[in-house]
Write a protein that binds this DNA or RNA. Structure first.
Lengths: 188, 188
DNA sequence: CTCCTATTGACAGTCACTGACATAAAACGA
DNA sequence: TCGTTTTATGTCAGTGACTGTCAATAGGAG
């Protein structure tokens, strides 16, 4: 009996987040989530490939980064281009905060979900590397830059979490400077 | 009927690697692996917390890094200390190659195993960060340095794979220089 | 030889996930 | 408006990963 349409996903997401938050991830059943959303377990697995995925958005971030990196000024270095891309997407992070924050609380205490998050991060890193290679960066260097940029971004996000009064863009900028500081400490 | 003792684990590991390599990870059953090793499925899960773990060693690398980082010369910068630690553990990588190589072949074509590997890498990153904090590095900086060092190491390992004639230590050194190159390209 | 402990087997059960088929609502063309 | 087709869901059965429990046996300590 299909009545409402695309909001089934949203209902399941919210049900899952609520249950995970209340009882914990491993003790909540996929059937429970489905029931709370008013559907069947089978329907749950038609919308999400597995139980974990209900907490993660599709990776629009990877696609957006891809576009932004191709739009970055050609005279920018590889690392600068990626960091600029992240900076121009900072508003996206700030909007998603409402859903991302409670989700992160659940993820941080659930090893299985942490693994999935790492996989997502790895996918983003890969997307960055490919975008850089389209800017004529060598594959090896592109991988290194992508991974480094991810480290810088994570650093910026962490700082932002501790001091949300400063806009995220500025935290990204400071994180970049922190990298420069650590990577050449023995300089004259 | 317990006859042989601690080599049951080794038999299961080898059986698993062989089966994964022949038929693929997802189509081989835990029961199959156990049968091939001459034990029961239940015994398999007594030795390994889950099916994936049979391909991964316990993280002795994290512990060794921890020791090495604490032994590094005090005047070394944070990043230099970690890279030095990796360099002094390079022989360890070169010895484990025999088991690690076929295992990596299986892992690289199995998403579920890639996730676990990412988790292992994250655990190592965390260990590095903690070791650095014991050297009086601030937590935020320690995380950034640890993540950056992991990126550098991955870069070095990748280069080593493509050119095994050069010793791994030198690849690590070159990777470090590559980082310096990318992190300050706009320098006067 | 006997007791104790570590390891395994045997068995039952839960839960994540999948394939196959039926059904009803919704979208669409005539 | 009506019949057809498409789409989202329900139902059911089945596989496989993992866990708890208890019994049985081998090996070592005394």
């Amino acid at each position: 009996m299909p009545k409402d349409r695309g909001d089934v996903r949203r209902r399941m997401r919210e049900a899952a987040l609520a249950l995970f938050y209340e009882k914990g991830y491993d003790v909540t059943t996929a059937a429970e989530i489905a029931a709370r959303a008013g559907v069947t377990e089978r329907t749950f697995f038609r919308h999400f490939p597995d139980k974990r995925e209900v907490l993660f958005n599709e990776n629009e971030l990877a696609e957006r980064l891809d576009v932004k990196i191709s739009e970055a000024a050609p005279d920018l270095g590889a690392l600068e281009a990626v960091i600029w891309a992240f900076q121009s997407l900072a508003p996206m992070f700030e909007e998603n905060l409402k859903f991302a924050e409670p989700a992160h609380a659940v993820i941080s205490r659930t090893p299985a979900l942490q693994e999935r998050q790492l996989a997502k991060a790895a996918a983003i890193t890969l997307a960055i590397s490919e975008a850089l290679q389209r800017r004529d960066i060598e594959p090896g260097t592109a991988n290194l830059v992508a991974a480094t940029a991810m480290a810088v971004t994570a650093h910026g996000l962490q700082a932002w979490k501790q001091d949300p009064s400063v806009p995220l863009v500025d935290h990204f900028g400071e994180a970049h400077e922190a990298l420069i500081a650590i990577s050449s400490p023995a300089r004259r």
